[in-house]
Amino acid sequence: MKVIEKRDAFLSDYEVFQFLTNLETSHGWDDETQALLQQNRRKKIKTKKPYNNVTLQRITRDTISYLRVNKSYIAQDEDEEMDEVTKNQNMSSPICKLQNDQFSELMRDLNRFELFKIEKLQIVNQLPSNMVHLYSIVEECDSRFNEDQINEIISIIERYSQSQ
């Protein structure tokens, strides 16, 4: 094995999520195909077997489930009264709701600010919803941006993370 280029490119969580879900569907590892297979097995209908590679299947599933969790949402006691649908919506990360064109629009909006590439990458990965989180990602945020700009960044992120 020879490593030609250690870091050929960075990938955002969104791209990884898209790639892995496509991989899962194309190999027939997603829930729908699995359920169909079970049904067919019971009815003894012969179907094409999904691609068999246990380690790849497991790591794909685990990575997707990690990316799917909303990392800035904390379950609260009063949430128990909420119905299942809204609960699930709150629990799942905005990353899995975004569309390709929305994602590039978000990128374009962020390009208006003088952020470093690595900071933009972290912003689109984590979609910070409050100032403290944004400050921890963007170095010396308070000297580089004024309050209005910071509020604007947060509101942009909020717009995309809440759109369906």
């Binding site: 094995m1 020879k2 490593v3 030609i4 280029e5 250690k6 870091r7 050929d8 490119a9 960075f10 990938l11 955002s12 969580d13 791209e15 990884v16 990965n125």
Partner: peptide, 10 residues
């Protein structure tokens, strides 16, 4: 968090 690495292997 994720990167792409270029690798060659036999």
């Amino acid at each position: 968090m994720f990167i792409l690495s270029k690798i060659s292997d036999l």
